[in-house]
């Protein structure tokens, strides 16, 4: 127990690091995923191709390899940024592929007749999109996007191994200080459980509020 009370600030810093990483990477992943999903359903073939290539490559890339390439490779191009930013970039790009697929299958669940009806009422493309298609798609993507973001929070642990301040990395400091390593990990595990359960509860709430009854 004193492992936690003695090192509350270390744990707190690590916990906040993980939360920060998760939030920023989630925002990047959602934005990029939305962009890629719009590419993948676009009527322009080259955009569709680009979106498909992005998703296929990133979904089959080991995240460690991506971290390796981004954190150690991009500086070779003269791009020097703080490691945390690189980590957000790697995590966000990786997760965007999964977000894209979730959003795309959400858009595909909207029946074709909905769009046709909207157009025959004289709605413009923007109106069809914002008033008819996206609200319906949103309802069916809550659960898959939630589980993708939980996976993102768990994946953020990899950043710790690349010397970004986050929860898993705290074990190194604490084991140097000579604390019981098993208890150190128990509290780390608890920290991750808090984060994943919070995201899960958040999306459960959204699902309850807006989700489609299945």
């Amino acid at each position: 127990m004193n492992v936690l009370t003695d090192n509350f600030s270390t744990y707190g810093k690590g916990f906040l690091g993980t939360v920060e990483l998760t939030v920023y990477a989630s925002l990047l992943a959602l934005a990029l995923g939305f962009l890629m999903a719009s590419f993948r359903v676009a009527p322009v073939a080259s955009l569709r191709f680009f979106g498909t290539a992005w998703v296929t490559v990133l979904r089959n890339t080991p995240l460690t390899l991506l971290f390796f390439a981004v954190l150690l490779g991009l500086p070779r191009f003269g791009l020097v940024l703080p490691f945390q930013l690189f980590a957000v970039l790697a995590l966000g790009c990786y997760t965007s592929a999964f977000i894209c697929e979730a959003l795309r299958s959400g858009i595909n669940t909207v029946p074709r007749g909905q769009g046709e009806a909207a157009r025959s009422l004289g709605m413009t493309f923007g109106q069809t999109l914002s008033a008819v298609v996206l609200p319906q798609a949103f309802r069916s993507v809550i659960a898959p996007v939630g589980s993708t973001l939980i996976a993102l929070a768990k994946n953020s642990a990899i950043a710790g191994a690349f010397s970004v301040t986050e929860l898993l990395g705290t074990y190194r400091t604490l084991s140097e200080l000579g604390y019981n390593i098993i208890w150190t990990f128990v509290w780390i595990a608890l920290g991750y459980l808090i984060i994943t359960l919070t995201i899960s509860a958040l999306f459960h709430l959204m699902e309850k509020r807006w989700g489609v009854a299945r």
């Binding site: 898993l168 390593i181 990990f185 991750y192």
Partner: peptide, 15 residues
């Protein structure tokens, strides 16, 4: 399922 894989790997490896 709720634990990051890496935490388990590090736990087994380090602890």
């Amino acid at each position: 399922r709720a634990m990051p894989v890496l935490v388990m790997i590090f736990f087994v490896f380090v602890a």
